[in-house]
Simulated scan of single mutants.
Amino acid sequence: MNYTLNQLRIFLKVVQNQSVTKASEELHLTQPAVSIQLKNFQDQFEIPLTEVVGRKIYVTDFGKEIAEAAEQILQQVSTIDYKTLAYKGQLFGKIKISVVSTGKYVMPYFLADFLKMHPGVELEMDVTNKNKVVKSLQNNEVDFALVSILPEKMKVEKIDLMQNKLFLVGNMEEDFTKKKKIEAILENRPLLFRESGSGTRQTMERFIVQQDLKINKRMELTSNEAVKQAILAGLGYSIMPLIGIRREIQNKDLQIIPLKGLPIKTNWSLIWVKGKNHNPAALAYLDYLKKEKEAIIHSKFSWYEMM
């Protein structure tokens, strides 16, 4: 048999995702390239590794055993790579971070230079909603989590990265140069909310209670991008993090609506379970952030600090 490490990686990723399409996305390869390598790998075995029923791919019992073996082989290869880097005095290891959905506009900028400096460090970053972020932290599945609201009833340590600013946002169909009360603004269009469990939604609901507002019309959407597109289409207004609408504000597709009590200001915080024993890569990353976060903010987010 002449299968390659690349074929093992591709096969394992297909098994993990139960999909060639999803595997190709995670591997940053085209779907045909993954399909060809999967076929070449299969051709080396007389027993089927997968079977397709309808349009869905299923892994055979034999395929599952091969996948387990492939995972062990790839782990051993990683160990060899890490030992080589350690021998050369380079930092190595994996950092796992869970990020709330809007945090995807923040976290990469605080990671990029660190990963360039330390090519032996691998990154695993999951972007999801706040509930799942907190759960992954509770289950010790990640090293860090990026949140804008600290979890309740959980002992964590943190480093604040930058401010999170939330404004009332609408499209360009109306003139808001003269301040209006939010009740008047929402007479004809609803207020758009994120799904239950979203940090942005929690912040919005807290603001509504503090301001004693009565919201008669509301609409719920399941992502920041969906809310943004709904506002652009004229479906309503929403209180949104400024960090996710830079392009639309600069292009004058969206506008910030002046409103008493806004912007709401929280902090983007990188948090971890109190007392967690970090691996060397994670410890080095924390040290890097403490030294470099102000320079990163000045370099990458000067536009944001001025608003």
Rank of each mutant, 00 (worst) to 15 (best):
205 E>N: 12
207 F>C: 07
272 W>S: 11
248 E>K: 10
241 P>A: 05
218 R>P: 00
224 N>H: 11
227 V>H: 01
223 S>M: 04
282 A>M: 10
277 N>E: 12
238 S>K: 01
285 Y>A: 05
284 A>E: 14
267 N>A: 09
285 Y>G: 05
283 L>R: 10
226 A>I: 06
274 K>A: 14
261 G>N: 04
285 Y>E: 07
245 I>E: 07
276 K>W: 00
251 N>S: 12
241 P>G: 03
280 P>S: 10
214 K>C: 05
213 L>V: 06
273 V>C: 04
202 Q>W: 02
267 N>D: 12
285 Y>R: 01
227 V>E: 02
203 T>Q: 07
266 T>R: 09
217 K>W: 03
208 I>E: 05
286 L>M: 14
283 L>D: 10
268 W>Q: 03
202 Q>F: 11
255 Q>W: 03
232 L>R: 08
223 S>D: 07
251 N>K: 11
231 I>F: 02
222 T>G: 13
216 N>W: 08
248 E>M: 03
211 Q>Y: 04
220 E>R: 09
258 P>H: 13
228 K>P: 02
280 P>M: 10
204 M>Q: 12
279 N>H: 08
234 G>Y: 14
246 R>L: 04
248 E>P: 09
272 W>E: 08
230 A>F: 01
239 I>V: 15
251 N>Q: 14
223 S>Q: 04
258 P>T: 15
242 L>K: 12
280 P>A: 11
212 D>I: 02
270 L>Q: 06
224 N>P: 00
233 A>V: 00
225 E>C: 01
283 L>P: 00
260 K>T: 11
214 K>D: 15
270 L>P: 06
272 W>D: 07
271 I>K: 08
231 I>Y: 03
255 Q>R: 09
224 N>Q: 06
206 R>G: 08
248 E>A: 15
207 F>R: 05
243 I>Q: 15
273 V>H: 05
254 L>I: 03
240 M>R: 02
256 I>C: 03
221 L>V: 04
242 L>R: 11
253 D>L: 14
270 L>E: 06
248 E>N: 13
239 I>R: 08
258 P>Q: 11
227 V>T: 05
281 A>V: 08
247 R>P: 00
281 A>S: 12
262 L>V: 05
242 L>D: 08
263 P>H: 12
205 E>G: 07
264 I>F: 08
224 N>V: 10
239 I>N: 13
231 I>P: 01
209 V>T: 15
257 I>G: 14
202 Q>G: 13
216 N>E: 15
247 R>I: 06
213 L>P: 05
252 K>A: 12
239 I>H: 05
251 N>G: 02
285 Y>V: 03
